[in-house]
Design a binder for these strands. Structure first.
Length: 549
DNA sequence: AAGTTCACG
DNA sequence: ACGTACGTGAACTTC
Protein backbone atom coordinates (compact mmCIF):
# COMPACT_ATOMS: atom_id res chain seq x y z
CA UNK A 1 0.00 0.00 0.00
CA UNK A 2 1.35 3.39 -0.87
CA UNK A 3 0.43 6.51 1.02
CA UNK A 4 -0.19 10.07 0.11
CA UNK A 5 0.37 12.87 2.60
CA UNK A 6 -1.38 16.13 1.89
CA UNK A 7 0.19 19.26 3.31
CA UNK A 8 -1.82 22.44 3.72
CA UNK A 9 -1.83 25.42 6.00
CA UNK A 10 -3.84 25.21 9.17
CA UNK A 11 -5.96 28.22 10.15
CA UNK A 12 -5.38 27.36 13.81
CA UNK A 13 -1.75 26.38 13.77
CA UNK A 14 0.81 25.88 11.11
CA UNK A 15 0.30 22.79 9.02
CA UNK A 16 -2.32 20.16 8.42
CA UNK A 17 -1.12 16.73 7.40
CA UNK A 18 -3.67 14.38 5.92
CA UNK A 19 -2.51 10.81 5.26
CA UNK A 20 -4.45 8.93 2.65
CA UNK A 21 -4.28 5.87 0.50
CA UNK A 22 -2.70 6.78 -2.83
CA UNK A 23 -5.15 5.02 -5.08
CA UNK A 24 -8.48 5.56 -3.37
CA UNK A 25 -7.53 8.79 -1.57
CA UNK A 26 -9.32 7.36 1.46
CA UNK A 27 -8.03 8.72 4.78
CA UNK A 28 -5.62 6.46 6.66
CA UNK A 29 -5.80 8.32 9.97
CA UNK A 30 -7.00 11.50 11.61
CA UNK A 31 -5.80 14.72 10.11
CA UNK A 32 -2.83 16.00 12.08
CA UNK A 33 -2.56 19.63 13.05
CA UNK A 34 1.05 20.54 13.63
CA UNK A 35 2.72 23.60 15.07
CA UNK A 36 5.66 25.21 13.37
CA UNK A 37 8.01 23.92 16.06
CA UNK A 38 6.88 20.32 15.70
CA UNK A 39 6.58 20.39 11.94
CA UNK A 40 9.96 18.94 10.94
CA UNK A 41 9.81 16.26 13.58
CA UNK A 42 6.33 15.07 12.69
CA UNK A 43 7.18 15.01 8.99
CA UNK A 44 10.32 13.01 9.75
CA UNK A 45 8.25 10.47 11.66
CA UNK A 46 5.67 10.12 8.90
CA UNK A 47 8.40 9.80 6.29
CA UNK A 48 10.04 6.99 8.29
CA UNK A 49 6.76 5.25 9.00
CA UNK A 50 4.91 5.54 5.68
CA UNK A 51 7.32 7.01 3.13
CA UNK A 52 4.34 8.74 1.53
CA UNK A 53 4.24 10.87 -1.58
CA UNK A 54 4.00 14.37 -0.14
CA UNK A 55 1.31 16.33 -1.94
CA UNK A 56 1.59 20.09 -1.64
CA UNK A 57 0.27 22.96 -3.69
CA UNK A 58 3.75 24.45 -3.98
CA UNK A 59 7.08 23.78 -2.32
CA UNK A 60 6.79 27.08 -0.41
CA UNK A 61 6.40 27.38 2.52
CA UNK A 62 6.95 23.72 3.36
CA UNK A 63 10.30 22.73 1.97
CA UNK A 64 12.45 25.52 3.32
CA UNK A 65 11.97 24.67 7.03
CA UNK A 66 12.18 20.95 6.32
CA UNK A 67 15.45 21.23 4.41
CA UNK A 68 16.88 23.53 7.07
CA UNK A 69 16.08 20.83 9.62
CA UNK A 70 17.77 18.22 7.44
CA UNK A 71 14.57 16.35 6.57
CA UNK A 72 14.59 14.26 3.40
CA UNK A 73 11.39 13.57 1.49
CA UNK A 74 11.67 10.73 -0.98
CA UNK A 75 8.57 11.43 -3.06
CA UNK A 76 6.48 14.46 -3.85
CA UNK A 77 3.47 15.63 -5.82
CA UNK A 78 3.53 19.37 -6.42
CA UNK A 79 0.01 20.25 -7.44
CA UNK A 80 0.72 23.63 -9.04
CA UNK A 81 3.23 22.03 -11.41
CA UNK A 82 0.97 19.05 -12.04
CA UNK A 83 -1.87 21.43 -12.81
CA UNK A 84 0.16 23.23 -15.48
CA UNK A 85 1.16 19.89 -17.00
CA UNK A 86 -2.41 18.58 -16.99
CA UNK A 87 -3.69 21.83 -18.43
CA UNK A 88 -1.29 21.70 -21.35
CA UNK A 89 -1.16 18.01 -22.16
CA UNK A 90 -3.18 16.79 -25.14
CA UNK A 91 -3.50 13.42 -23.37
CA UNK A 92 -5.88 14.59 -20.63
CA UNK A 93 -9.23 12.85 -20.39
CA UNK A 94 -10.91 16.06 -19.40
CA UNK A 95 -10.06 19.70 -19.49
CA UNK A 96 -8.18 21.16 -16.55
CA UNK A 97 -7.76 24.81 -15.71
CA UNK A 98 -4.36 26.42 -15.79
CA UNK A 99 -2.49 27.34 -12.63
CA UNK A 100 -0.91 30.74 -12.29
CA UNK A 101 2.59 29.80 -11.21
CA UNK A 102 3.41 33.45 -10.62
CA UNK A 103 0.58 33.80 -8.09
CA UNK A 104 2.04 35.24 -4.89
CA UNK A 105 2.35 32.78 -2.05
CA UNK A 106 0.18 33.79 0.92
CA UNK A 107 1.88 33.92 4.30
CA UNK A 108 1.07 30.84 6.39
CA UNK A 109 3.04 31.60 9.50
CA UNK A 110 0.56 33.83 11.23
CA UNK A 111 -0.15 32.10 14.54
CA UNK A 112 -3.69 33.33 14.87
CA UNK A 113 -2.65 36.94 15.20
CA UNK A 114 -5.67 38.13 13.36
CA UNK A 115 -8.66 35.89 12.94
CA UNK A 116 -9.67 37.68 9.77
CA UNK A 117 -6.55 36.62 7.94
CA UNK A 118 -6.11 33.21 9.48
CA UNK A 119 -8.11 31.43 6.86
CA UNK A 120 -5.89 29.92 4.18
CA UNK A 121 -6.03 31.88 0.96
CA UNK A 122 -8.79 31.03 -1.48
CA UNK A 123 -8.09 27.71 -3.15
CA UNK A 124 -5.36 26.73 -0.72
CA UNK A 125 -7.12 25.05 2.19
CA UNK A 126 -6.65 21.33 2.79
CA UNK A 127 -10.04 20.64 1.20
CA UNK A 128 -9.11 22.72 -1.83
CA UNK A 129 -5.79 20.94 -2.23
CA UNK A 130 -7.42 17.52 -2.00
CA UNK A 131 -10.13 18.56 -4.44
CA UNK A 132 -7.51 19.75 -6.88
CA UNK A 133 -5.65 16.45 -6.58
CA UNK A 134 -8.82 14.47 -7.15
CA UNK A 135 -9.61 16.52 -10.20
CA UNK A 136 -6.11 16.00 -11.59
CA UNK A 137 -6.38 12.26 -11.09
CA UNK A 138 -9.73 12.25 -12.84
CA UNK A 139 -8.22 14.05 -15.80
CA UNK A 140 -5.49 11.45 -16.28
CA UNK A 141 -6.02 9.44 -19.47
CA UNK A 142 -7.63 6.00 -19.26
CA UNK A 143 -5.08 4.43 -21.56
CA UNK A 144 -2.59 2.80 -19.16
CA UNK A 145 0.51 3.68 -21.18
CA UNK A 146 -0.41 7.34 -21.53
CA UNK A 147 -1.45 7.46 -17.90
CA UNK A 148 1.88 6.04 -16.77
CA UNK A 149 3.80 8.59 -18.76
CA UNK A 150 1.93 11.55 -17.33
CA UNK A 151 2.24 10.22 -13.82
CA UNK A 152 5.95 9.78 -14.35
CA UNK A 153 6.20 13.32 -15.69
CA UNK A 154 4.36 14.77 -12.68
CA UNK A 155 6.43 12.75 -10.21
CA UNK A 156 9.69 13.67 -11.93
CA UNK A 157 8.75 17.34 -12.10
CA UNK A 158 7.82 17.24 -8.42
CA UNK A 159 11.06 15.68 -7.30
CA UNK A 160 12.77 18.25 -9.50
CA UNK A 161 11.04 20.94 -7.46
CA UNK A 162 12.40 19.37 -4.26
CA UNK A 163 15.90 19.26 -5.75
CA UNK A 164 15.59 22.91 -6.75
CA UNK A 165 14.74 23.81 -3.14
CA UNK A 166 17.61 21.70 -1.86
CA UNK A 167 20.07 23.34 -4.24
CA UNK A 168 18.83 26.83 -3.37
CA UNK A 169 19.34 26.03 0.27
CA UNK A 170 22.76 24.43 -0.15
CA UNK A 171 24.10 27.04 -2.56
CA UNK A 172 27.13 26.74 -4.79
CA UNK A 173 30.49 27.07 -3.04
CA UNK A 174 31.99 30.38 -4.16
CA UNK A 175 35.44 31.87 -3.66
CA UNK A 176 34.39 35.42 -2.77
CA UNK A 177 37.93 36.66 -2.19
CA UNK A 178 39.02 35.16 -5.49
CA UNK A 179 36.11 36.80 -7.26
CA UNK A 180 36.97 40.19 -5.71
CA UNK A 181 40.62 39.81 -6.67
CA UNK A 182 39.55 39.07 -10.23
CA UNK A 183 37.35 42.17 -10.28
CA UNK A 184 40.14 44.37 -8.86
CA UNK A 185 42.63 43.04 -11.37
CA UNK A 186 40.39 43.55 -14.39
CA UNK A 187 38.31 46.57 -13.36
CA UNK A 188 40.45 48.38 -10.81
CA UNK A 189 39.37 49.74 -7.45
CA UNK A 190 35.76 49.50 -6.50
CA UNK A 191 33.75 52.68 -7.10
CA UNK A 192 30.18 53.75 -6.50
CA UNK A 193 27.35 51.71 -7.92
CA UNK A 194 26.68 54.18 -10.69
CA UNK A 195 30.21 55.03 -11.84
CA UNK A 196 32.32 53.06 -14.29
CA UNK A 197 35.15 51.16 -12.59
CA UNK A 198 38.55 52.87 -13.28
CA UNK A 199 39.92 50.44 -15.85
CA UNK A 200 36.62 50.37 -17.70
CA UNK A 201 36.40 54.17 -17.67
CA UNK A 202 39.94 54.36 -19.04
CA UNK A 203 39.05 51.97 -21.84
CA UNK A 204 35.98 54.05 -22.70
CA UNK A 205 38.18 57.16 -22.92
CA UNK A 206 40.74 55.45 -25.16
CA UNK A 207 37.97 54.21 -27.39
CA UNK A 208 36.40 57.65 -27.68
CA UNK A 209 39.80 59.03 -28.67
CA UNK A 210 40.56 56.24 -31.14
CA UNK A 211 37.19 56.72 -32.81
CA UNK A 212 37.49 60.51 -32.63
CA UNK A 213 34.14 60.73 -30.87
CA UNK A 214 34.52 62.69 -27.62
CA UNK A 215 32.06 61.63 -24.94
CA UNK A 216 31.29 58.36 -26.68
CA UNK A 217 29.33 55.92 -24.54
CA UNK A 218 30.43 52.51 -25.82
CA UNK A 219 27.55 50.90 -23.94
CA UNK A 220 25.16 52.52 -26.36
CA UNK A 221 24.94 50.35 -29.49
CA UNK A 222 23.54 53.31 -31.38
CA UNK A 223 26.41 55.66 -30.54
CA UNK A 224 29.02 52.97 -31.01
CA UNK A 225 27.66 51.94 -34.41
CA UNK A 226 27.63 55.54 -35.60
CA UNK A 227 31.19 56.08 -34.37
CA UNK A 228 32.36 52.91 -36.11
CA UNK A 229 30.72 53.98 -39.38
CA UNK A 230 32.39 57.37 -39.10
CA UNK A 231 35.71 55.62 -38.63
CA UNK A 232 35.11 53.66 -41.83
CA UNK A 233 33.97 50.28 -40.54
CA UNK A 234 31.04 49.05 -42.59
CA UNK A 235 29.37 46.92 -39.92
CA UNK A 236 25.64 46.30 -39.69
CA UNK A 237 25.62 45.99 -35.91
CA UNK A 238 28.06 46.03 -33.01
CA UNK A 239 27.46 42.42 -32.06
CA UNK A 240 30.59 40.58 -31.01
CA UNK A 241 30.27 37.89 -33.66
CA UNK A 242 30.14 40.53 -36.38
CA UNK A 243 33.04 42.57 -35.04
CA UNK A 244 35.10 39.39 -34.68
CA UNK A 245 35.32 39.15 -38.46
CA UNK A 246 37.34 42.34 -38.60
CA UNK A 247 40.99 42.31 -37.66
CA UNK A 248 41.87 45.84 -36.55
CA UNK A 249 43.34 47.31 -33.36
CA UNK A 250 40.35 49.60 -32.77
CA UNK A 251 37.89 46.75 -33.15
CA UNK A 252 40.03 44.80 -30.73
CA UNK A 253 39.63 47.67 -28.27
CA UNK A 254 35.86 47.68 -28.73
CA UNK A 255 35.67 43.98 -27.99
CA UNK A 256 37.85 44.29 -24.92
CA UNK A 257 35.64 47.08 -23.64
CA UNK A 258 32.49 45.04 -24.19
CA UNK A 259 33.93 42.07 -22.37
CA UNK A 260 34.97 44.14 -19.38
CA UNK A 261 31.71 46.06 -19.31
CA UNK A 262 29.81 42.81 -19.32
CA UNK A 263 31.85 41.48 -16.42
CA UNK A 264 31.24 44.66 -14.41
CA UNK A 265 27.49 44.72 -14.95
CA UNK A 266 26.70 41.02 -14.89
CA UNK A 267 29.14 39.69 -12.27
CA UNK A 268 30.59 42.74 -10.57
CA UNK A 269 30.68 43.72 -6.91
CA UNK A 270 26.95 44.38 -6.78
CA UNK A 271 26.16 40.93 -8.07
CA UNK A 272 28.56 39.35 -5.62
CA UNK A 273 27.00 41.17 -2.70
CA UNK A 274 23.49 40.37 -3.72
CA UNK A 275 23.79 36.68 -4.56
CA UNK A 276 26.74 35.24 -2.70
CA UNK A 277 26.34 34.87 1.06
CA UNK A 278 28.88 33.23 3.33
CA UNK A 279 30.82 31.87 0.42
CA UNK A 280 27.88 30.33 -1.41
CA UNK A 281 25.86 31.43 -4.43
CA UNK A 282 22.14 30.96 -3.84
CA UNK A 283 20.19 31.25 -7.09
CA UNK A 284 16.48 30.73 -7.44
CA UNK A 285 15.29 28.08 -9.87
CA UNK A 286 11.91 28.41 -11.54
CA UNK A 287 10.03 25.35 -12.76
CA UNK A 288 7.03 25.08 -14.99
CA UNK A 289 7.29 28.41 -16.79
CA UNK A 290 9.34 27.51 -19.86
CA UNK A 291 7.05 25.83 -22.41
CA UNK A 292 9.47 23.00 -23.07
CA UNK A 293 9.70 22.15 -19.38
CA UNK A 294 13.25 23.35 -19.08
CA UNK A 295 14.03 25.19 -15.90
CA UNK A 296 14.56 28.90 -15.67
CA UNK A 297 16.37 30.81 -12.99
CA UNK A 298 15.37 34.14 -11.67
CA UNK A 299 17.97 36.13 -9.86
CA UNK A 300 21.65 35.83 -10.31
CA UNK A 301 21.32 34.44 -13.82
CA UNK A 302 22.27 30.99 -12.59
CA UNK A 303 21.71 29.24 -15.90
CA UNK A 304 23.92 31.72 -17.76
CA UNK A 305 26.93 31.53 -15.50
CA UNK A 306 29.84 32.48 -17.80
CA UNK A 307 32.63 29.94 -18.14
CA UNK A 308 35.16 32.61 -17.23
CA UNK A 309 33.51 33.17 -13.85
CA UNK A 310 33.43 29.44 -13.07
CA UNK A 311 37.08 29.73 -12.04
CA UNK A 312 35.93 31.19 -8.72
CA UNK A 313 33.48 28.39 -8.08
CA UNK A 314 35.58 26.33 -5.68
CA UNK A 315 34.91 23.90 -2.87
CA UNK A 316 36.43 24.09 0.57
CA UNK A 317 39.33 21.82 1.56
CA UNK A 318 38.73 18.08 1.52
CA UNK A 319 35.78 18.45 -0.78
CA UNK A 320 35.28 18.37 -4.52
CA UNK A 321 32.78 18.89 -7.29
CA UNK A 322 31.61 16.05 -9.44
CA UNK A 323 30.40 17.59 -12.69
CA UNK A 324 28.31 15.36 -14.93
CA UNK A 325 27.19 16.20 -18.44
CA UNK A 326 24.78 14.26 -20.65
CA UNK A 327 26.82 13.74 -23.82
CA UNK A 328 25.09 14.83 -27.04
CA UNK A 329 21.84 14.49 -25.19
CA UNK A 330 19.51 15.93 -27.80
CA UNK A 331 20.52 13.70 -30.74
CA UNK A 332 20.22 10.70 -28.44
CA UNK A 333 16.78 11.85 -27.32
CA UNK A 334 15.81 12.22 -30.96
CA UNK A 335 17.04 8.67 -31.61
CA UNK A 336 14.87 7.43 -28.75
CA UNK A 337 11.63 9.29 -29.50
CA UNK A 338 11.76 8.63 -33.23
CA UNK A 339 12.86 5.04 -32.60
CA UNK A 340 15.49 5.47 -35.31
CA UNK A 341 17.57 2.29 -35.10
CA UNK A 342 20.41 3.67 -37.20
CA UNK A 343 20.79 6.75 -35.00
CA UNK A 344 20.57 4.61 -31.87
CA UNK A 345 23.28 2.40 -33.24
CA UNK A 346 25.46 5.42 -33.94
CA UNK A 347 24.84 6.42 -30.35
CA UNK A 348 26.21 3.18 -28.96
CA UNK A 349 29.52 4.94 -29.12
CA UNK A 350 30.08 7.41 -26.28
CA UNK A 351 30.98 10.08 -28.79
CA UNK A 352 28.13 10.18 -31.28
CA UNK A 353 29.81 12.84 -33.39
CA UNK A 354 32.96 10.75 -33.69
CA UNK A 355 30.83 7.91 -35.05
CA UNK A 356 29.46 10.18 -37.77
CA UNK A 357 33.03 11.15 -38.55
CA UNK A 358 34.28 7.55 -38.65
CA UNK A 359 31.36 6.56 -40.86
CA UNK A 360 32.52 9.31 -43.24
CA UNK A 361 29.11 10.95 -43.09
CA UNK A 362 30.80 14.22 -42.22
CA UNK A 363 34.32 15.48 -42.67
CA UNK A 364 34.79 17.31 -39.36
CA UNK A 365 33.48 16.93 -35.84
CA UNK A 366 32.16 20.49 -36.04
CA UNK A 367 30.13 19.55 -39.13
CA UNK A 368 28.66 16.62 -37.24
CA UNK A 369 27.62 18.83 -34.35
CA UNK A 370 26.26 21.67 -36.46
CA UNK A 371 24.48 19.26 -38.77
CA UNK A 372 22.75 17.55 -35.86
CA UNK A 373 21.76 20.83 -34.25
CA UNK A 374 20.50 22.08 -37.56
CA UNK A 375 18.28 19.05 -37.91
CA UNK A 376 16.89 19.56 -34.41
CA UNK A 377 16.54 23.35 -34.61
CA UNK A 378 15.23 23.40 -38.14
CA UNK A 379 17.92 25.60 -39.61
CA UNK A 380 18.83 25.70 -43.25
CA UNK A 381 22.57 25.51 -42.71
CA UNK A 382 22.94 21.79 -42.19
CA UNK A 383 19.75 20.15 -43.37
CA UNK A 384 19.84 21.76 -46.77
CA UNK A 385 23.59 21.41 -47.20
CA UNK A 386 25.71 18.37 -47.83
CA UNK A 387 25.89 17.47 -44.14
CA UNK A 388 22.12 17.62 -43.86
CA UNK A 389 21.73 15.47 -46.94
CA UNK A 390 24.07 12.86 -45.47
CA UNK A 391 22.19 12.81 -42.19
CA UNK A 392 18.83 12.61 -43.94
CA UNK A 393 20.05 9.63 -45.92
CA UNK A 394 21.52 7.82 -42.91
CA UNK A 395 18.75 8.55 -40.42
CA UNK A 396 15.53 8.84 -42.42
CA UNK A 397 13.33 7.80 -39.50
CA UNK A 398 14.64 10.51 -37.18
CA UNK A 399 14.40 13.09 -39.95
CA UNK A 400 10.81 12.15 -40.73
CA UNK A 401 9.99 12.48 -37.04
CA UNK A 402 11.23 16.06 -36.71
CA UNK A 403 9.74 16.98 -40.10
CA UNK A 404 6.40 15.69 -38.86
CA UNK A 405 6.66 17.85 -35.73
CA UNK A 406 7.55 20.87 -37.87
CA UNK A 407 4.60 20.23 -40.19
CA UNK A 408 2.18 20.03 -37.27
CA UNK A 409 3.52 23.31 -35.92
CA UNK A 410 3.25 25.04 -39.29
CA UNK A 411 -0.38 24.09 -39.43
CA UNK A 412 -0.98 25.56 -36.00
CA UNK A 413 -1.33 22.22 -34.25
CA UNK A 414 0.23 21.49 -30.86
CA UNK A 415 2.80 18.78 -30.28
CA UNK A 416 3.91 16.92 -27.16
CA UNK A 417 6.99 15.54 -25.50
CA UNK A 418 7.56 11.83 -24.96
CA UNK A 419 5.99 11.91 -21.49
CA UNK A 420 3.15 14.14 -22.63
CA UNK A 421 4.14 17.70 -21.89
CA UNK A 422 2.07 19.70 -24.32
CA UNK A 423 3.08 22.51 -26.57
CA UNK A 424 -0.20 24.39 -27.01
CA UNK A 425 -1.73 24.84 -30.47
CA UNK A 426 -1.39 28.26 -32.06
CA UNK A 427 -3.74 30.92 -30.76
CA UNK A 428 -6.68 32.35 -32.68
CA UNK A 429 -4.77 35.44 -33.76
CA UNK A 430 -2.06 33.29 -35.32
CA UNK A 431 -4.62 31.16 -37.13
CA UNK A 432 -6.36 34.28 -38.41
CA UNK A 433 -3.09 35.62 -39.77
CA UNK A 434 -2.67 32.33 -41.64
CA UNK A 435 -6.08 32.75 -43.29
CA UNK A 436 -5.95 36.49 -43.98
CA UNK A 437 -3.44 36.51 -46.78
CA UNK A 438 -5.12 38.77 -49.29
CA UNK A 439 -2.03 40.75 -50.22
CA UNK A 440 1.48 39.59 -50.86
CA UNK A 441 2.91 41.14 -47.71
CA UNK A 442 0.50 39.38 -45.38
CA UNK A 443 1.06 36.13 -47.28
CA UNK A 444 4.80 36.51 -46.76
CA UNK A 445 4.51 37.28 -43.09
CA UNK A 446 2.05 34.40 -42.58
CA UNK A 447 4.48 32.02 -44.27
CA UNK A 448 7.33 33.31 -42.15
CA UNK A 449 5.24 32.83 -39.01
CA UNK A 450 4.36 29.30 -40.10
CA UNK A 451 8.02 28.43 -40.68
CA UNK A 452 9.00 29.95 -37.35
CA UNK A 453 6.35 27.94 -35.57
CA UNK A 454 7.47 24.82 -37.42
CA UNK A 455 11.01 25.31 -36.14
CA UNK A 456 9.65 25.83 -32.67
CA UNK A 457 7.58 22.63 -32.56
CA UNK A 458 10.35 20.67 -34.30
CA UNK A 459 12.67 21.71 -31.50
CA UNK A 460 10.04 21.30 -28.80
CA UNK A 461 9.63 17.55 -29.14
CA UNK A 462 13.37 17.05 -28.63
CA UNK A 463 14.11 19.78 -26.09
CA UNK A 464 11.10 18.95 -23.92
CA UNK A 465 11.94 15.25 -23.86
CA UNK A 466 15.57 16.03 -23.09
CA UNK A 467 14.37 18.09 -20.13
CA UNK A 468 12.32 15.09 -18.98
CA UNK A 469 15.29 12.78 -19.24
CA UNK A 470 17.35 15.25 -17.17
CA UNK A 471 14.63 15.41 -14.50
CA UNK A 472 14.50 11.65 -14.23
CA UNK A 473 18.31 11.46 -14.21
CA UNK A 474 18.49 13.92 -11.32
CA UNK A 475 15.73 12.14 -9.47
CA UNK A 476 17.52 8.80 -9.74
CA UNK A 477 20.81 10.35 -8.65
CA UNK A 478 19.15 11.92 -5.60
CA UNK A 479 17.50 8.65 -4.71
CA UNK A 480 20.69 6.62 -5.08
CA UNK A 481 22.67 9.10 -2.99
CA UNK A 482 20.10 8.84 -0.25
CA UNK A 483 20.06 5.06 -0.48
CA UNK A 484 23.84 4.94 -0.22
CA UNK A 485 23.55 6.89 3.01
CA UNK A 486 25.60 9.78 1.65
CA UNK A 487 22.86 12.37 1.93
CA UNK A 488 24.53 14.22 4.79
CA UNK A 489 27.64 15.42 3.00
CA UNK A 490 27.00 14.77 -0.65
CA UNK A 491 24.45 16.58 -2.74
CA UNK A 492 23.58 18.27 -6.00
CA UNK A 493 24.51 21.96 -5.88
CA UNK A 494 23.98 23.19 -9.44
CA UNK A 495 22.00 22.44 -12.56
CA UNK A 496 22.28 23.61 -16.18
CA UNK A 497 19.80 21.69 -18.38
CA UNK A 498 21.97 18.67 -19.19
CA UNK A 499 24.69 19.18 -16.62
CA UNK A 500 24.56 18.33 -12.93
CA UNK A 501 27.07 19.51 -10.35
CA UNK A 502 27.46 17.66 -7.06
CA UNK A 503 29.63 18.52 -4.10
CA UNK A 504 31.03 15.76 -1.91
CA UNK A 505 34.05 14.72 0.16
CA UNK A 506 37.06 13.91 -2.03
CA UNK A 507 37.11 10.28 -1.00
CA UNK A 508 33.56 9.78 -2.23
CA UNK A 509 34.05 11.33 -5.68
CA UNK A 510 34.79 8.22 -7.71
CA UNK A 511 31.96 6.27 -6.21
CA UNK A 512 29.65 9.20 -6.81
CA UNK A 513 30.80 9.33 -10.42
CA UNK A 514 29.71 5.72 -10.93
CA UNK A 515 26.45 6.42 -9.14
CA UNK A 516 25.65 9.34 -11.47
CA UNK A 517 26.47 7.26 -14.52
CA UNK A 518 24.23 4.52 -13.23
CA UNK A 519 21.48 7.09 -12.68
CA UNK A 520 21.77 8.03 -16.37
CA UNK A 521 21.31 4.40 -17.36
CA UNK A 522 18.25 4.17 -15.12
CA UNK A 523 16.86 7.39 -16.60
CA UNK A 524 16.99 5.91 -20.10
CA UNK A 525 15.22 2.76 -18.92
CA UNK A 526 12.62 4.67 -16.94
CA UNK A 527 11.62 6.68 -19.98
CA UNK A 528 12.21 4.33 -22.89
CA UNK A 529 12.23 0.89 -21.32
CA UNK A 530 14.73 -1.95 -21.55
CA UNK A 531 15.56 -1.11 -25.17
CA UNK A 532 16.56 2.45 -24.31
CA UNK A 533 19.39 3.89 -26.35
CA UNK A 534 22.70 4.59 -24.69
CA UNK A 535 22.97 7.77 -22.58
CA UNK A 536 26.62 8.25 -21.70
CA UNK A 537 27.56 11.02 -19.30
CA UNK A 538 30.98 12.56 -19.04
CA UNK A 539 32.12 13.23 -15.51
CA UNK A 540 34.85 15.53 -14.26
CA UNK A 541 36.09 15.57 -10.68
CA UNK A 542 37.55 18.88 -9.59
CA UNK A 543 37.50 21.29 -6.68
CA UNK A 544 37.24 24.06 -9.27
CA UNK A 545 34.19 24.22 -11.52
CA UNK A 546 36.13 26.20 -14.10
CA UNK A 547 38.53 23.30 -14.60
CA UNK A 548 35.82 20.70 -14.93
CA UNK A 549 35.37 20.44 -18.68
C1' DA B 1 7.97 49.09 -22.83
C1' DA B 2 10.79 47.89 -26.61
C1' DG B 3 15.14 47.09 -28.67
C1' DT B 4 19.93 45.51 -28.44
C1' DT B 5 23.39 42.65 -26.87
C1' DC B 6 25.37 38.76 -24.57
C1' DA B 7 25.64 34.87 -21.26
C1' DC B 8 24.19 29.82 -21.06
C1' DG B 9 22.23 24.98 -22.77
C1' DA C 1 11.99 33.31 -54.93
C1' DC C 2 12.72 33.95 -50.07
C1' DG C 3 14.93 33.71 -45.47
C1' DT C 4 17.73 30.39 -42.31
C1' DA C 5 18.42 27.40 -36.26
C1' DC C 6 15.74 26.39 -30.74
C1' DG C 7 15.07 27.93 -25.78
C1' DT C 8 15.98 31.23 -21.83
C1' DG C 9 17.43 35.85 -18.19
C1' DA C 10 19.61 40.16 -17.41
C1' DA C 11 21.51 44.74 -18.08
C1' DC C 12 21.59 48.81 -20.46
C1' DT C 13 19.87 52.33 -23.75
C1' DT C 14 16.27 54.51 -26.09
C1' DC C 15 11.52 55.85 -26.95
Amino acid sequence: MSALAFLASDPDGYALIDLRDSDSAHPLREVLSVSREDFAQVVTWIEAEFEPRWAMLRTTPWMQPLISAGVFLAKAYVLSLAQRIMHRTPLAAEQVEDFDLERPVPATDRFNQDALFDTPAFGESLEDVIALYTQQRRALPQDPAARKRLELLIHAESVGALIACEMEHAGLSWDEAGHRALLREQLGERVSEYARPPKLAAKAQELAAALKTPGLNPDSPQELLKALHKAGFAVRSVRAWELEQISHPVIQQVMEYKKLSRLASAHGDMWLEQWVKNGRFHPHYVLGTVVSGRWAASGGGALQLPHAIRQVVRTGPGRTFVVADGRQLEPRILAAISNDQQLQQAGQQDDLYQWLLDAKLVSTRQDAKLGMLSVIYGGGGGASGTVGAALTKSFPTAMRFVEQAALAGQQGEGVRSFLGRGCPPADEQWMRAQRDTADEASQRSADAAARARGRFTRNFVVQATAAEWALVWMGHARHLIHQAGWGRDCQQVFFVHDELVFECPEELAEQLQRLIQHAALLAGRTLFGAASPHFPVSVAISANYGDAK
